[in-house]
Each structure stands twice: as C-alpha cells, then as structure tokens.
Write a protein that binds this DNA or RNA. Structure first.
Lengths: 216, 216, 216, 216
DNA sequence: CATGAATGAGCTTTCATTCAT
DNA sequence: AATGAATGAAAGCTCATTCAT
C-alpha cells in the first residue's frame, strides 16, 4: 500500500496552471470527457509533464479533487456561524456565505458534486476527501453550527434538536437550489442579484422560529 | 433544426430491451463510460440495430433520458397530493411516495440527476426534457400541489404562499437527502426501513404548521 | 487462469497475412522493435483487427511464436533419421534436411532463437513451446534418433552412447554455424551452394566412425 | 562517413560505471528494453552526461558492445592453447577456460550473442566488432590454435586439417551448449559443478583421436 | 560543464460508427 | 432489414533527446 515516493520536483507555477485547467475541464466534461491533451494545451505545459507529475489520468483527477476541496476549505469561514447572535442573523449570514462560495467556486462545486457519481469504482483514499466535502453539508455538521444558538433559545416542548437541524438543512438545500436556478438564468450574476433569495430565507426563518420557539 | 424523421420501423421488444439496458448502463457508468457494445450485448440485439434505431450514441442517450422521465411520469400519482385533507397527511403521503419512487426507480433517478452534469455540452433538445424533470421538484410545481390545501387553512399574516412552498420543497429535499444516505448504508432497504425518515417528516411539519398557521 | 474464450471469429486469410507479417517483423526487429501499425499495414489489415484478434501485442507475439513452431513442426520429417541405413547416410540426410529447414524457414528460426532471450519476463504457457523447440536439438532427442542405428553397429569398448550423441550434436551445431556463415555471405543461396558443407560433414563422420567403431 | 571526433573529455570513473551498468541492462533487457533513465540512475550519473559522452542510445549500445568484447579479449589467455603438449590436455584446458569465461562474463556473452540479432538494422561499424567476436569461435581462429599441436601428431591419410578443426569447433560448441544448460539449471554454479562436462569432453577427444590418428 | 526537468513524436489500445454480407 | 466484423480517429502513456539553469 505504501506508494513509492518518487519525489518528482514540481514547478509550482505549472502545478497551479495544471490544477486550474484540470478543475475546469473535469468540472465541465467529466472524468472521461476531459482530455489530457487539452488540459496540457490549455495549461500551457507539455503532455509529458502531466504524466511526470501525476503518473496517470486517474491520479490527476484525484489531485484535482484534492485541490478543489482544499480551495474551498481554505476560505471556509465558520465564524459566520459561530458569531451570529440569533437564528435570523446566522442563517442570513450562512446563506450569503454559501451563495458567495457557490459563485466564487462554481467549478469546484460542480466537480465535487459530480465526483460522487464518477468516483464509484475509484480509489478509497479519495472517497474520504469527497465524503468530507459532503459531510460539511450534513446533519452532524449542522448540529455543531447551530447548537450554540439553540442553547440560548426557548425551544417549544416536543420539538427535538434533530428536527430543527433537519429543517435548517432543508432551508439550506432550498437556498442551494434557488441559487443554482438563478445562476443558470443569469450566469454572470453577482451578490446583489441574490437579494431575493435572501429575502426568501428571512421568510423561512420567520416561519421556523414561530414553529419551534415557545410562545411567551 | 428540423430532424429528418426517417420513420424507421422498430421492433417494440427490442426497443424495450435496449432502453432498459441503456438505462442501467448509462446510470451506472455515465455517458462516456457506457459502451455501445455492452449495451447491445446485454440487450441481446445487434450493435447495428442500435445505430439504425437511434442514429448514434448521443441520440441513444437522449432517448434513454426520455424513457426514464416517461417512466417516472407514468407512475407519478398526483392524487397523493390532491386527496390529502391536511398538510400532515399530504406531506407524509408525498414522502412515502417519493421514497417509493426513489426505491423503485433508482436508476432513472441516478440517470437524470447525472444528466444535468453530463449534458452540459450536449444538445439543446434534451435540455428541455431534463429541465422538465427538475422543474417537477420546483416551486412552480409545488404551488399547484399544495395550494388547494393551503386554501383551506388559516395562514398567519405576513407569511406568503411562496415562503410555504419554499419550505415544503426544503423539507422534500431534506427527505431526498436522508433517503439517499439511508440507501447508501443499506442498499437493499425496503419501505419499512424508512419509517424513521417519515417520523422526522412529521416533526418537520409540526414545526412548520406551528410556524405559519394562525394561533386561534 | 482459465482465459475467457471470447471466441472472436477470424478470417483465415487475414490471420494468415497477419501471422506471416508478424513473423517477419518480430524476427527482424524483435518484440519491442516491431510496430503494430507496421504489421497491420504490411498485412493489409486495420490496426483494430489485430487487437480484436489477439487482444494485445504480447498475445500477438505469442501467437506468432506458436505459428512459427507449428510451421517447423509441420514439415519436420523424422524419417530422414529413422530410415537411414548407416551413420553416414543418416547424418548427410539430416544435414541436408537441417540446411533446408534453415533456408526455408530462416525467420522462424530467428524468431525462436531470439524468443529465448526476449521471453525472459513473459508468460509460462509459451515457455513450454519455446523449450520444446530447443529440446529438439538436444541430447535427449538425439538419442531417439541415432540409437536404432548405433544398435546395429559394433561400438568400441569404453565409448559410451552419451559420448557419441554429444559428438553428433557437436557436428550438427557445427553444420548450423557453417550454414549461418554461408547464408550471411550469400543471402540467396540454394541447396547446391551447401555442397561444401555436406562434404565437410562426410569428413566429420568418417573421423567419428573411425573413432568409435571396433577395428575388425 | 567521417565521424566528427569532438573529443569530449570523459571522467574515467563515470565511463566505467556507465559501461558496467549498460552492459547489465542491455544484456538483460535488450536494446529497446533498456531505458537510458535506468542506466543513468544505476550508474549514478546524470542522463545528460550519457548523451554528452555517447551522443545517443545507439552509440551507447555500440560502446557497450565494444566494452564487452574488449573485456573478454583482455582476459583471453591463448597460452591455454599453445602450451598444451597433447590434444587431450589442450581441449580440457580450453574447455575449462571457456566455461570459466562464460561463468565470469555471462552478461558479456549474452549481450554479444543477442547483438547479432539486435544489430540487424543498425550501424555497420559495429558489425565488424560483433563479427570479430563470432570469428573467434570459428574455423580460421581455431586453425591457429590447434595447428601447432596437430603438426606434432601423425594424422591418418584422407583426414584434412579442416575436418579436424571443424570437429574441434563442434566439440566446443557442444561444450558451450552443455554449459548453458547446466547454468540454467544451477544459476550459481562454480567450476567444480562442471566436472561432468569436462569428463564428457575427454570422451569426445578420445573418440576423435582414435578417428584421425594413424594406427601404429 | 553537468544536470535533470521538460518536451513531444511515436506507440499501444479503445470504441463509435460503417457497410459487406 | 439485420448483423457483427472491420475500420481508423482519437486517447492515454512512454521515453529518447534537448536545453535552461
């Protein structure tokens, strides 16, 4: 299992061009649709160097996946969650943040979303990476984010934490869907175009709060 | 744009075998991963006939997409929505129904979900089909489904129909996610395995109703 | 170990052209020096068909090896050995025969001689074939050939069968070397050009007979 | 034809490492199977220097061939032939010597034996070297070796020098074959393992002497 | 001079598509 | 009309050779 670390020295500029190009190509064409020749050409490197650096196409794909998760991770600012004082503020921040991420890293999102399907046969090392990406948008993760806020709020009897977490995820899913739809209609949208979505979110939260908070 | 309708006579049995096989192959391997040779072999038809019937692989893929949407549409029983007397009954029915659909037609779902990504470069004629599939799980469609019920309910002021629709979609998205997760853990699950999910849904609806109904 | 017999139907004419070309190319350029593209072109078949018929280059090579051994085997006429009444006749016949074989199947000989070196890493199934080819020019085989004749002759005491067999093999080796040398000097030689060699052989046998027969 | 002798200064230590490694690699993998990368790595020199010293792979191969012949030539001790007082002593010495050479320089032998096949398309300058190696085991060479001894012996009428030379070569060929077989069965054999072969040789010579010497 | 990273021509192999039977 | 053997463009990958450092 211990891969021979052949320790090929890599030119960081080339690596970065290759990764950026691979990201785009894999995201838009899928694993099989992306051609190494094209990637090399668009990255302004030789075909040979790709195989020198990454051994083969599968490894290049995995490296690209890792690159995408790292990029998203590197900008993931969880303070938007923790610092919020109330639910409305938190969700609005989170929504803005999620939209911003999806706007800023659309290819990373596409790549990772597809990866789940593509990587069905492929290496287990990567599956961990991909699963991690998915888990960040999952119940367990959500719990950590909103529990501190829920602790400060008077929850109505008969409403479990899990239910609230589920609803929150549902709201975020819905935000994701609405964002995706808007981006398709208006591919070069910026943050201000998403004000309507944020307004929708406010409505969702208002209903939810009425739903699970104790009526004084 | 006007496709030459050469009107090739097709043996319905072969068509049906080809479609069933294509569905499976495309769903599991993706557009480029599926091989025409394999499809022909597994469908017990000659490779030639596939090209005679469908002109080329892209058209076969599109036909398969259409086949998948048709199959799902053909069993879509909207009475589960219309006949429900209250929100709880409606959503529980809808949830059961959606789970059942996902269980019964996992390949169709997989194919159509991936199609969104795969078909990025491909023909516009198909995009319509795919978009339709997605729209069925979208605000406009949801409106038709739940409006009759909402009409009978006393909605709290300041809560718009659109908000409720969005929340409902969010709940259904969340159900979809929970179903997917469960199916991955337990690939051969049956309906009874999904009781927990349905219980979750009851919790969601309880909160939502408290959230948007007038307190008497 | 049981290879899936995919049972590809093969056009005998194409097979025969491919084999003939492969034989020439592999014999003259070695395994790595021979190019599938060239083989296809010279055999007037498509590159694809070679891979259809033989799966890959390694299998093509093995098939060619088998083809070469079969061809030589198919014309191997052991009666030249058995029918001879005396040693001189036998060796002269055998020499003529060996020369003829080497003249008629120079590429087969070259291929098989090199195969021993080339096939060092390769499949065990083939090793058997190649080993067989080599064994035909070996002590064990020689024993069967000349023992019937030796039985009729008065062997001098102190001379073992094994010694005589070894000497016979030495003579045949020497004939092979002389033939090879002559063929290099005169690539388009025919049988009559080899009369000198046969004359040499007569000299060898005369000495040997004087050496191991009882003096009456 | 006049090669530009650019007279590149060469580090003798590097040359020696390159030659030793090339010998091994070319002998074991053949011309095309040997990789310049591997040779450089195993010789602990840069790939660049190989091309600086030898221009290209073909020249490196030729240099290696020359290196191998020189090594064998440099230890070739013809006194084993000249000093022998009788035929038996001479052949036994020669046999021991040949075995020792084959044992001590197996890679040189393998390289040169294969070279004959490999170098079919290649440069004529080398052909001379290779031919020389082969000629050393040839009639002309043999003549020089054994004529002094034959001069002292009473040869039977009707037996030509050439015949005896041929038979001697045959015996040596046979020794070579027996040695090869034994080395394959027992790769780490030493000289004592070859006693049987030497015993066989004694038998061969006994027969030959009886065959070509005058009966007093 | 020496190095070894980079190049890209050239090789093996795959597979959608054609077309003789 | 149906078949599936044949095709060859296109893809992944290798490695002798070059050349900036």
């Amino acid at each position: 299992m211990t891969e021979k670390k052949t320790n090929i020295p890599m030119d960081p500029e080339k690596v970065s061009r290759i990764m950026a190009t691979s990201l785009t190509e894999f995201a838009h064409r899928g694993y099989r649709g992306a051609k190494t020749e094209d990637i090399a050409q668009k990255a302004v490197v030789s075909k040979g160097i790709i195989f020198r650096y990454y051994k083969n196409k599968a490894h290049l794909y995995m490296a690209t996946l890792k690159f995408a998760t790292d990029r998203i991770e590197s900008v993931a600012d969880y303070s938007v969650w923790h610092d919020a004082q109330d639910l409305d503020a938190m969700i609005v921040n989170a929504t803005k943040y999620k939209i911003q991420l999806q706007l800023q890293y659309p290819e990373e999102f596409k790549l990772l979303l597809d990866a789940y399907a593509e990587a069905s046969d492929a290496p287990s090392a990567l599956k961990h990476e991909i699963a991690e990406f998915y888990n960040n948008q999952t119940s367990a993760n959500m719990a950590n984010m909103i529990d501190p806020i829920l602790n400060r709020l008077p929850i109505r009897n008969n409403v479990s934490r899990k239910t609230i977490q589920g609803l929150m995820l549902g709201v975020l899913d819905q935000v994701g869907a609405e964002t995706k739809t808007l981006m398709q209609k208006k591919p070069d949208a910026d943050l201000t175009d998403f004000d309507d979505i944020i307004e929708n979110v406010r409505g969702y939260i208002d209903v939810l709060e009425h739903g699970f908070l104790k009526k004084e």
